[in-house]
Amino acid sequence: MTLAKRVIPCLDVAGGRVVKGVNFKDLVDAGDPVELAKKYGAEGADELTFLDISASVEERATTLEIVRKTAEQVFIPLTVGGGIRSAENVNELLRAGADKVSINTAALARPQLINEISDRFGNQVLVLSVDARRADTKSGFEVTTHGGRESAGVDALAWIEEGISRGVGEILLNSMDADGTKAGFDLEMLRRVRDICSVPVIASGGAGRTSDFTEAVAAGADAVLAASVFHFGEIKISQVKKELAKAGFPIRP
């Protein structure tokens, strides 16, 4: 009996629609979030992630409505990220039907936010989303903001360690070098993070082939996340799981 490796489709949501671009640019419409969530649930997704990439104040209500509708129809865990700035934002999302939330920019601006959310709701609800790229820092990786366009001036591995000590329950590690390239996950970064990380790690950014997911799990990922390859039907969730099973990793059939 072993914990299954999770396969997670990520839906980048803006203006109530799922969108996808390369390195967060040139966004293309990829469908209705609730319909896509249902489709993925039926195809065997182990969790779903919604990322509100517009995250403007006026769109928060739209996001809450999408979360509500999804939670009513899809009975697998749902993580929601984007624009979360307070424990009260988290409370709204949890009450709307989210099971976990992911935070990124707001935690960099004010790390204490991690403690505030974790103390109130437990560390199991909190995912730290880290947009990292190769750089001349202590670990060789730095944290970026604004969809990878700007440096946050923080070492990625040091930030992950701080996040865990403040109370995050999971790391969503997104390679900004690999994101949208379909050239595979950044395996070296994944191994380095796995080595220092006492909570589960989700690998994100760069999936292009079915074998990329298996390599990420072999490098230590507890879960693998992708967006466009799933949305545009290039890879099916069932294919990823089949390949993982073939490589000897436990999956949920």
């Binding site: 009996m1 914990l3 199991q124 507890d222």
Partner: peptide
């Protein structure tokens, strides 16, 4: 367990 939380799908007996 080395990795907590225990998060995800597991089988039962």
């Amino acid at each position: 367990a080395p990795l907590l939380p225990h998060m995800g799908w597991n089988n039962i007996s």
